[in-house]
Design a protein around this nucleic acid. Structure first.
Length: 554
RNA sequence: GCGCCUGUAGCUCAGGGGAUAGAGCGCCGGCCUCCGGAGCCGGAAGCACAGGUUCGAUUCCUGUCAGGCGCACCA
């Protein structure tokens, strides 16, 4: 509807110019929006006010001219008026909102799909936590956000790949192995010390214990290199398995698990460095190989290969992103914790240096999570081993509440996660409010089935019997769903949909409290049943995009 | 010191160049002979501060103040 009005306005401008009621003007970036005030119509536009400077005319005069030249064919348009400083308010035939009801019912799981992505390929890489420990609250936020963004993009017409980058190479793996070894020694009654920068968590002790249970103490006598390598491989495999399970339990399905080590093994890091060398972005200094980031406007250059001959994490990341683009993605989205923001500019510069479009890489920074319990901040750190794991979180508050809480807030908002609140199984919890709306509709349908009846076919229902304010308000919001999907996709903002779905649930509850669905009036009952079915479709589709279940009963 | 993010209701957060700034929780007051009261209806309460751009700024720009996070031959 909004689109139709925008098109009509564009035509109106052209025609007004043609007939000489407006001077020739360039079309500004105007908006057609839903006014806050109901008295200001169903839609309103600021177009006339934006044109006033160019046209050197009073906004209200321009508005009049535009209204005179609106195409007569505009659907549902009942009345147009000039208001305030020059707004054009559109008043529609109230029946227009009812179109959404049969549409949603007929399209079912496809209602809300839009073609924004034009089937282009996008990769969403998220979580990618080091496989040296368990997933914590920050990772969990990334998981909820990333998965939901991926789902929304897919629904908006993109071909989406969900990917996890496993940092199974480099320095931290070394420290990891040393930490496991220390615990291995301790458990076997020997002296062991977790190194500086090592991992002190209880999970490392558990890992060492499991290794001993399976393989005994035979590593005590082997060469240290072999011992460390063996322990590292064992522990990494275990951690990666744990991470995969936790994410699967969190209802986050990945398409690709990409190993950093595989880049090294395949020579892709060297290859990337070679590319940069050919393009003259490298130089040596004090035994290290440097990337000339400053030549692309950055503050300082970056080391790619240390003077000990080992490539840095940055070098591997460059190779990784080269690989991403070589795989044919039109767009690459990384979801990172805000503590990595310093890395964004240099990675983009490297992408540019390699000859790819740096704007095809989009890094979504997610502010960190502060965990509250009993009114106290719970500090999280892998080093000290103090954190709530993703698995523990799911146990504590449940899958749906956890996922909903993480995406309720925009990514760039610091998130205070109140464990006590989230685990409360009461109406304090917004996710229940929404799920309850869905369950309520299902309950009506169960009542219906007990009477041996069912929801009617969309085409056999006269939706124009829906005339009550609560009915129209609900249908109106259902009609907005495709547009809400498009906005959430464009802004990579799942939290928009949590707001939206909460509103739809509220409208359903309001309606439910005033009116009965199943009555003696068969025609009206059918119309309301169809409205319920449409609402159920929207609730279900939106919740699915958020990674939250839509239960039939609670 | 430099960079990024954030200052909106008592609390947690949406919104956003326009016509009376929203939601949840909390607080106050109402609603079940009725398809699930995990619900509904009503009330009090707010754009950190100072400049600037604009017909119009809570929104954009600059500065100040406050909080968070970065600024390694770690990842």
């Amino acid at each position: 509807m909004r689109l139709a009005l925008e098109k009509a306005l564009v035509k109106a401008v052209r025609k007004a110019v043609d007939v000489g009621e407006l001077p020739s003007v360039e079309l500004p970036g105007f908006v057609v929006e839903v006014p806050r005030e109901r008295g200001h119509g169903d839609f309103a536009t600021n177009l006339a006010m934006l044109l006033s400077k160019q046209a050197r005319m009073a906004p209200r005069k321009i508005a009049e001219a535009l209204i005179q030249n609106l195409p007569h064919s505009t659907r549902w348009l009942e009345k147009v008026e000039v208001a305030g400083p020059g707004f054009i308010n559109f008043i529609l035939d109230p029946r227009w909102v009812l179109e959404s009801v049969p549409l949603a019912v007929n399209r079912q799981a496809d209602y809300g799909r839009v073609q924004q992505g034009e089937n282009k390929k996008v990769q969403v890489e998220f979580v990618s936590a080091n496989p040296t420990g368990l997933l914590h609250m920050g990772n969990a936020r990334g998981a909820a956000l990333g998965d939901s963004i991926a789902s929304i993009l897919a629904f908006a017409g993109w071909q989406v790949t969900r990917e996890y980058y496993i940092n199974d190479a480099g320095n931290q793996v070394e420290n990891f192995a040393l930490s496991v070894e220390a615990r291995y020694f301790e458990l076997l009654g020997l002296e062991g010390e977790v190194p500086e920068g090592g991992y002190h968590g209880q999970d490392i002790i558990d890992t060492a214990r499991r290794y001993i249970e399976e393989h005994g103490d035979k590593l005590l006598k082997t060469d240290r290199r072999v011992r460390l390598e063996t322990l590292a491989q064992y522990a990494l495999a275990e951690k990666i398995g744990g991470i995969k399970k936790a994410l699967a339990d969190f209802n986050v399905p990945y398409d690709v698990w990409f190993s950093e080590q595989s880049l090294h093994d395949a020579g892709k890091v060297d290859e990337a460095i070679q590319h940069l060398r050919e393009r003259d972005f490298l130089y040596e200094h004090e035994g290290a190989l440097w990337f000339k980031a400053t030549s692309l406007g950055l503050e300082k250059d970056e080391v790619l290969v240390r003077n000990n001959g080992l490539p840095t994490y940055f070098a591997a990341d460059i190779a990784y992103h080269m690989d991403k683009f070589n795989r044919g993605f039109d767009r690459v989205i990384n979801i990172w914790g805000a503590d990595h923001h310093g890395h964004v500019a240099r990675l983009k510069s490297a992408v540019q240096a390699l000859g790819y479009d740096p704007d095809a890489l989009q890094v979504l920074l997610m502010q960190l999570v502060r965990l509250f319990s009993g009114g106290e901040i719970v500090r999280m750190s892998k080093r000290t081993g103090q954190f709530i794991t993703l698995e523990e979180l799911i146990d504590e508050v449940g899958l749906d509440a956890a996922r909903y809480f993480f995406i309720m807030r925009s990514a760039d908002s610091h998130l205070d996660f109140d464990l006590d609140l989230a685990r409360t199984q009461s109406n304090d919890n917004p996710v229940y409010y929404v799920q309850y709306a869905h369950a309520r509709i299902c309950s009506i349908f169960r009542q219906l089935a007990e009477q041996g009846r069912q929801v009617p076919k969309a085409d056999s229902v006269d939706v124009e019997l829906l005339r009550e304010e609560a009915e129209l308000a609900l249908a109106r919001r259902l009609a907005d769903f495709p547009e809400e999907v498009a906005l959430a996709a464009r802004q990579l903002a799942p939290h928009r949909l949590t707001r939206y779905v909460h509103e739809v649930a509220g409208l359903l509850h309001s309606f439910y409290n005033i009116h009965r669905v199943i009555t003696d009036d068969v025609a009206l009952t059918d119309a309301r049943l169809l409205l319920m079915e449409a609402t159920k479709v929207v609730l279900c589709n939106a919740l699915t995009l958020l990674g939250v279940r839509a239960p039939e009963k609670m």
